[in-house]
Design a protein around this nucleic acid. Structure first.
Lengths: 401, 401
DNA sequence: GCACTTTGGCAACAGCGTTGCGAAAGTAGG
DNA sequence: CCTACTTTCGCAACGCTGTTGCCAAAGTGC
């Protein structure tokens, strides 16, 4: 492009920093703070204080951002005795991303802007067992249609399975994030045997979809996507999440037809070496307990779901709490979020049950032991919105998708 | 000093990068690779490949390091058709650090060089319950003596409890790392109620010792220190630990009079917001199981240690394995290390028992599921050596102590 | 001895945040 | 209304970073 030297990032190990890296880092930092400030905006001087950069550096960075259309001036603060501060805000419509949640029987796709606000949504029936060709067709079609009607790109009316047009026309589209239940390789974008659908094993979903749509695609586990999306609200705010002490960390526990977790440690989603982290449900909490379909015995998942089936929701919440307690102790996180259809069925019971176990933990720890807060996150779109964040996160300096 | 502008790091949140930060980062990266190369050394071009920097940049950086005495030329490689590569190596004696392991009844202090090699050691009886004054005296005395006899600083013969001299004279001494069993605040260097010794609650150990010795002091939990020390060998090697996929991650499980863990995630020690991470022993694996002294029921620690007491070491290993399996599933780590006196009593049994549980896990996962390796780490000095790394780690670009 | 390859330093360069300074835009007081 | 003061924020010069172009040094292979 403009002769800018970028660090080669192919299979990079520890990577050296150059000036391009410095600019990227600081720009992302400022964008993150702008996002955190939301409609209220933030002044240059505040940006300087929060980043540790000099006001002049912030002025330069924001000037670039304004020229590129990512930021704009938005009024002034009250004066405190001198020239009033000019408020800057993010221009949300400067960038968009699609988040697609592929569940066993349904596809849900959302189009979000830089702020993460949903500006378009589509739902479609999906049969994950119906073969990669058909599934790919449905996904490509819905995404193209969604983008077309909202951003004016070429629409995707070529029909299911047909060669739907590329999306390169929609200039502000950063790409498409896809979230699925099964185990997969986030780094390579390849699926492993999706639970119950062995024919997907080894399918290069990311590359296949990227080629078809002509925009970048990122693939991740559903719980990771949800956790990423939630981290924008929890840690994000003002990027303050990445502060001292390793930053804000939390766990998102998803209890639906199964039980899984997404972990955010120090403001970043922790996926582990093989995108396998977050296997919370098959944590053993009862040695030689009842058999789980995973082949083990006494997993949290089977204990929890059996209790739900028996109608003993309180017991299910207690078991979930024990698992959450183990996790809190192991990672010393700040927050536990609960979600999923089963939780949605009796949110207060689950929050109370988990919180009680964690409170007991805190009491045992004594003195400084404040109990870790527990909250429910609602909405059927948590995963889809998080999937879109897979593309937005790198813009704001979070680990690359 | 030289008019170099540093970023103010007081209570920094997300911090902007400036040129000083770039230089620090790249210098640390090169030092880390030099350390990883060990006596074999590494050439400038290899450094350039590994860091992604240009050869010229590496030449500049290594020139600075050579001038400062941290690196030196060490022979040449065989030519591959042109000018042979010049091999560079770390100069280990350019820097030293003290690691002190405070256990319930013993103090063990080691002096290590930049390579982490032990160049001096001292042991002394210690009564953690004997009051802060006495303990501080013993520690200061032993550390002063150790440094004095090895580095020629002022010796610490002022006697126990007496005003031992500062260590500022020993130029290459980076500081003192202290590791203890109890819960504490790593960031502030303040102890919480050390298990069994409530009188330590709130004691500012770091500042008290730093003032007394006149060198920087860093405090951490014993398991964290051990994990940090082990990470130098495991991840470290060539800094390659911090490579793709979040980097090399492992858990160190310490089974002695208690059961705790140190976690390394992506090459960095994970301490959690309150230095509370790694509470592995009080993970519940048997709902409503036998009471643990922590006040909970069915903790791994109580199950494991009771089995050992009964002489059922295999069962203890299995229980430990279940806990390890939970951890592996949750974090998707690459390696499990076992240590501590109890493990040392029957290392093969514990490795086999834990490995068996993890292998079963891998089989259930199917296809790509390679079992996570399990190894024993020996030596009574693991914690003390790791404590010294609390000071060395920042030099090599690991998170600040 | 000659051609070639590879290493690595010197000098000029572009780009980053920083500093010094001044214009702009308010408040406070006469 | 005018003056004095405070605060914001941009322009220009600056120092420092890694990068590029070029060339000497030091080997191998014929």
């Amino acid at each position: 492009m403009g002769g800018v030297n970028r660090v080669s990032r192919t299979k990079s190990g520890p990577v050296g920093a150059n000036l391009f890296a410095v600019r990227s880092h600081n720009t992302a930092l400022v964008l993150d703070l702008l996002r955190g400030a939301g409609a209220a905006g933030i002044s240059r001087l505040e940006l300087a204080e929060r980043t540790g950069l000099t006001p002049q550096a912030v002025s330069k960075i924001t000037a670039r951002l304004r020229e590129a259309g990512f930021a704009a001036e938005a009024g002034r603060r009250a004066s405190t005795g001198g020239k009033p501060r000019t408020v800057l805000r993010l221009v949300p419509e400067a960038g968009h991303a699609v988040g697609a949640h592929l569940d066993r029987d349904e596809l849900r796709a959302v189009l979000v802007d830089l702020d993460g606000a949903v500006v378009g949504e589509r739902r479609a029936a999906l049969d994950l067992g119906g073969g990669s060709r058909a599934v790919l067709g449905v996904v490509a079609n819905e995404v193209s249609g969604l983008v077309g009607e909202a951003l004016g790109g070429r629409d995707g009316s070529a029909g299911p399975g047909g060669p739907s047009g590329g999306l390169a026309g929609a200039g502000s589209l950063l790409g498409v994030g896809v979230a699925l239940p099964g185990p997969l390789d986030h780094a390579r974008g390849v699926l492993h045997r999706v639970t119950g659908f062995p024919e997907w094993d080894g399918f290069p979903l990311r590359d296949a979809l990227a080629e078809r749509l002509g925009v970048p695609v990122v693939v991740d586990k559903d719980t990771n996507a949800a956790a990423l999306g939630l981290s924008v609200g929890v840690c994000g705010g003002a990027g303050a999440g990445r502060a001292e002490g390793g930053g804000r960390s939390f766990a998102y526990l998803h209890l639906g037809t199964g039980l899984g977790a997404g972990l955010v440690i120090g403001g970043e989603v922790h996926r582990g070496a093989r995108t396998g982290a977050g296997e919370f449900g098959h944590q053993v909490v009862q040695l030689d307990g009842p058999a789980c379909e995973c082949g083990n015995r006494g997993c949290v998942e089977v204990l929890c779901l059996e209790a739900v089936t028996r109608g003993e929701v309180r017991e299910a919440a207690r078991v979930l709490g024990v698992g959450a307690g183990n996790l809190v102790g192991l990672l010393d996180i700040d927050l536990v979020l609960l979600g999923g259809r089963t939780v949605a069925g009796a949110p207060e019971v689950f929050v109370a049950g988990v919180a009680e176990v964690l409170a007991a933990r805190a009491r045992r720890e004594g003195a400084a032991g404040e109990s870790v807060p527990v909250r429910v996150v609602g909405g059927e779109r948590v995963v889809a919105e998080g999937a879109a964040q897979l593309l937005l996160a790198p813009v704001f300096g979070r680990a690359a998708g």
